[in-house]
Write a protein that binds this DNA or RNA. Structure first.
Lengths: 356, 356
DNA sequence: CTGTTAGCGCTTTCAA
DNA sequence: TTGAAAGCGCTAACAG
């Protein structure tokens, strides 16, 4: 069996990836001409040459090497999205709309997880930077702001969900404190004598801090003492503890339980419903986030809808605009670009039957 | 303000990405030496040189350009995951575990969506191939098998969720037909006189075809006539039609409604519960997939748990193994690698209160 | 209308 | 223990 595949004629399936050289050789032209073809500069090229090149490219299944292109052009047409956990409802919706808009504009998306660990995040950031992504979008832990500042000096960096003051970084968040204030006020206004707030330890996570703040401020504006439980979602005992504590609150009826995010509620929902309190009469139930099951349970769950898709779209647009801006001005310090801005997209309260 | 940043001393923030040249110059060595350093070949390098290079690299915040590396090494340490919709429950879990395992091994993950459109898929595949990904994992539409065969001849290709016979491609699926057969038998065995199956149009999607087959086979083995509804999830009228049809089935009680996936069930659940049929006594409810809310509703929902995470892990391992294999043997046609294999990971029936 | 050539940043012989 | 130089695949002056 003759394996000398220098004859490219019958190369329906190539064993080795064809290069621009191969195309040039087979088409009997120079690589420059092929390059021109690839970049659509047909203005000065004979129809015959054009056709010939097209044929050979098709025949060899040739695709230009994006690495070589990127190396030359120093832009990869790719963006990194770094999130805590890609299965978090926020991330799922966000990544999807981000990806969608970016791909329309010919950008690829790298997705990576940090698990919320500072060192992992650092590695991932560095590693993505190595890949020469044209921009970075991240749900940051806030523990690598120095690094991010360095990177933001070179490519657009957009922080979503959790804002941090970093030079040259665009923040994109929802109005956590206000929405949480609104929810708490809503509950108190409906006649619940107390609102029990269940959250994960703040640990300097801005969303948690802000939501808690909104809650406590609403409490104090209603003259009601706040009651906060801290839980670890992974730890069933800590969840059990909350349920037990709530169980012994018969005297406080009617009261409401308000969780800081949908994942806490998913853990707490079943045990709470098993208690001897009627919903919504004796016990109200509400959560930040809008789980897909909120409208399936009976009564439907009162919740806060985060503008997840909108944030993804906006993040993509900011990124695209800034990439374009930096290419045009070629001056990364240009003050026209929306550096250091913080965009706030409001969440909305979605009342359900679980409160009132 | 002096902007000549040729002095690298005070370069805490660099405006231009440092290259190996810069490091070499600042450290007073050749790029070869720096390259050796970068690749951990310290065996023959003076401690002083080593230290010096390390310092400069740190100082300039230097990170080697993965593009240049990849161009040279013709491998990018990145893998493409191409799915129909990254927010589908299957994809969310799958992508997550895939990403996790790959990242442990130093691989990056490109994620892209096709929306189930053949042409989009084709573009995405080509485009990822251009990016010189070291492997491709996809939930394919099955409409680009020719292209995939070509690609599979050059890099490992793994098909998940939906299997197609393609030369050199590894398939990774669950036992859709068997699980569906089991579910249907379970329902019929529990005393439901009829099982109504609601699915999206098969349209040659293997999962749909197989699940339907499992259903009809179970029906015929029980001597019960199958009753299939086709719906379009996006179209509320088509969903309404099903609900109406079921509404008029009082004579058939007790019957069960079994949906081909969790997304259909999420649309149908509420309307079905509003009907005048008691669950599970008069009407059983079951679905393929295990939605996170299955255990939150009352009664809990009987469902089929797909081994999503396991599939992600396995996909990653297959990919890694095949990448390693091809590098070692440098012969893509080596028969030792698991080419053309089809791995089947079984799903499990999770009984709930909604049936019985 | 087409080709020559110099790099983009890195790895890797081959020499010293 | 270290360097010089070729080249990965592509683009873009600069020539013809």
């Amino acid at each position: 069996m003759d394996m000398t595949s220098q004859h490219g004629k019958e190369a329906t399936i190539v064993n080795k990836r064809a290069t621009i050289q191969d195309i040039a050789r087979e088409a009997g032209v120079s690589i420059t001409t092929v390059s021109r073809f690839l970049n659509g500069r047909f203005d000065s090229m004979s129809a015959a040459t054009k056709q010939k090149i097209a044929d050979v490219i098709h025949q060899l299944g040739y695709r230009p090497n994006a690495l070589a292109r990127g190396l030359k052009a120093s832009q990869t047409k790719s963006v990194a999205a770094i999130v805590v956990n890609m299965s978090y409802p926020f991330c799922v919706g966000f990544l999807r709309s981000l990806s969608r808009v970016l791909s329309v504009h010919g950008y690829h998306l790298f997705v990576a997880e940090t698990g919320g660990a500072a060192e992992v995040e650092r590695d991932v950031i560095q590693s993505m930077f190595s890949q020469r992504v044209d921009a970075m979008v991240l749900q940051s832990t806030g523990d690598n702001n120095d690094l991010l500042a360095t990177i933001a000096a070179q490519v657009p960096v957009v922080l979503v969900d959790r804002a941090f003051e970093i030079d040259g970084v665009t923040n994109l968040i929802t109005n956590n404190a206000e929405a949480s204030f609104e929810m708490t006020s809503h509950l108190l206004g409906q006649g619940y004598r107390q609102v029990i707030y269940v959250t994960e330890p703040e640990a300097a996570v801005p969303t948690r801090v802000d939501r808690l703040r909104g809650y406590t401020e609403a409490c104090s504006s209603y003259g009601v003492p706040p009651m906060v439980f801290h839980v670890d979602r992974e730890n069933s005992e800590s969840m059990l503890h909350v349920t037990n504590a709530i169980q012994s609150m018969a005297n406080e009826r009617p009261f409401a339980v308000y969780t800081a995010n949908g994942l806490i509620m998913i853990e707490l929902y079943k045990p709470l419903r098993k208690l001897a309190f009627g919903v919504p009469r004796e016990m109200g139930l509400a959560t930040f986030d809008q789980p897909d099951w909120a409208s399936l349970v009976e009564p439907t769950l009162t919740c806060i809808r985060q503008p997840v898709e909108e944030m993804g779209t906006l993040a993509a647009n900011v990124v695209l605009e800034r990439i374009k801006g930096e290419i045009e001005t070629s001056d990364p310090l240009d003050e026209d670009s929306p550096r250091g801005e913080t965009h706030i997209i409001p969440s909305t309260l979605v009342p359900g039957g679980s409160t009132l």
